[in-house]
Design a protein around this nucleic acid. Structure first.
Lengths: 325, 325
DNA sequence: CTGAAAGCGCTAACAT
DNA sequence: ATGTTAGCGCTTTCAG
């Protein structure tokens, strides 16, 4: 409980530079409508550097009425190499706009998102998927704008992934598809959406709807599912993601089935290991960095009064065709 | 730039409850040395609920001189199911202590950690590995304490993972080991540490030091490495992690080698897919949730003046023996 | 062009 | 037992 050494404040910098705190603030924020002579400006910046001064976020937001913190909520399950690239690009783009990104792993424990939002005084909260109405209201009341990668209207675009998987398989001549659902209940909502995309594509091609089966990351369970699909004359299955797809491939091997002969398999997300299966896994993927960039734009737009919106085009997924289909 | 609707403040709550702001603050913070009658207390809490009031972090930290925000820096590479469990448990334990966790993906782009720290006004910054001296100084100057899962003294414990891999293989009769280094340079430091553990175990067993080879997540590169090890009469290899191990298994298959006959393989981290390889992958793993809990304790201890320290015992890894070794 | 001064929302002495 | 008051570090009018 020892009161720690006083940190350097704007007053220290002002003193060191021989100007007033206000001037320091002007320089640091490039406050428009001020004309600081180059001389003074550099004197201030020099002092800032020398003292390694960093304005306190809390004081800044309190005074300015808005913070430059953006909070990203990530469902604690969809974490993989892809999301990392997305977050990095998102953070970088935000940084270009002078905003700071921090991340929160949504999930059962810990504190509710609105509390976190209030704690860091975020001015924008972003998520991959829309929050439930309660949460959204809480966030707004906590003073934050809310932005998503996929807003409600862009929803159909989210199905694009499933649709693309299916279209690829249908183009290859498959007339009866399966869908491998993920194990975890929290993934269900996304999975349902992707499955809908597959169903759309099937309907459009005039073939039976996909046979969706629950799966587990387990050899025998996967083998059973594979056999079941074969029994039902399914010739190709879309997996929720690459991990499920790899597990299915393993299950098939266990059931002495081979891909793509007995069953063609298609993954999603293009994780590194997808390239290493036997046969290598075909998959669909987003350009995650593009998504990150575009979400950052949406954030900036929101902050300057525009409406939160991500252009659906930015989500366009693409197929990576390998030997497993 | 429309000034948004004024958010509810402690004054609103005070008014609604018919008390002074100070009283509300006392109730909300369980300020010690105050005796608020149950009556008043519940009246305040009721008002808080009705107004869905959430104190602003920035105002709180500014006034109190310390925030309840903890910032966790994650190297943007070590993201996987394991780290997720760790973060969740860490967040939950911190929440129990009234602290809020947010996370920052360290990496090239975005802003430097000390800036993020200042922006959210974190009172503690935690990391998996020690930061470089510059960063650490910046953080301290930004007013944060710094805590790690593995502090310098606990360092030897970090080697435990490598050591355990090696000991397991040596117990199985292997006399010449290999080590599969990860591809990404940022993983290098951790890998070196783990490799040191393997080397220790070898030295202790009186056998040759491990033959470390750089690897890539690529079939032919892995096949080449596998052949090289065989040529050098290595009979078992410790992989940096399960992903590398799985890739090695794939490379061996490609080179028509089988595990564990031609080469025994041992992974690390126990990712779900490790169970599904052929043969299933033996691996070593931490109890990540225990680590999360114990790091939270270290944070709390630091905050109450103790010194940042994680008990090495909490990092004790264990072997998961499967068919690949 | 620069400084003085008034808060932002909250906490923590200090009064009552 | 509760209210009053003085800031926390910064931004931002408004004067000079």
């Amino acid at each position: 409980m020892t009161r720690p050494a006083k940190r350097t404040t704007i007053a220290d910098v002002a003193r060191a530079a021989g100007v007033s705190p206000a001037t320091v603030s002007f320089v640091l924020n490039d406050t428009p409508g001020q004309s600081i002579p180059e001389e003074t400006r550099s004197r201030v910046l020099e002092a800032v550097r020398r003292l390694d001064y960093r304005p306190r976020g809390s004081a800044r937001s309190l005074a300015a009425g808005r913070s430059d913190v953006v909070l990203l909520s990530i469902p604690h399950l969809s974490i993989g190499p892809g999301i990392t690239r997305f977050v990095e690009q998102f953070a970088a783009s935000l940084a270009d706009a002078g905003l700071t990104l921090v991340t929160h792993l949504a999930g059962a424990p810990g504190r509710p998102l609105p509390d976190v939002c209030a704690a860091v005084d975020a001015s924008v909260v972003a998520g991959l998927d829309p929050f439930d109405e309660d949460t959204a209201r809480g966030l707004r009341r906590a003073g934050a704008d809310v932005v998503f990668t996929t807003d409600v209207e862009a929803r159909p675009t989210l199905r694009g992934m499933g649709r693309l998987q299916a279209e690829h398989l249908i183009a290859l001549g498959h007339r009866r598809l399966g869908y491998a659902m993920p194990e975890h209940p929290l993934l269900r909502k996304i999975a349902d959406e992707r499955l809908l995309g597959v169903a759309d594509a099937c309907a459009q091609a005039g073939i039976d709807p996909p046979l969706a089966l629950d799966t587990k990351l387990d050899l025998t369970a996967m083998a059973r599912a594979a056999r079941r699909w074969r029994r039902e004359s399914v010739t190709a299955v879309c997996a929720y993601n690459d991990e499920v797809a790899i597990a299915l491939l393993a299950g098939m091997r266990h059931a002495r089935m081979t891909a793509p002969g007995d069953l063609a398999v298609m993954g999603a997300d293009d994780i590194p290991l997808a390239r290493l299966t036997d046969p290598p896994l075909s998959t669909v993927a987003f350009d995650l960095e593009k998504v990150g960039r575009s979400l950052a734009e949406a954030v900036v737009a929101t902050l300057s009064g525009g409406k939160p919106r991500v252009s659906p085009a930015s989500l366009s997924p693409h197929v990576i065709h390998r030997a497993s289909t």
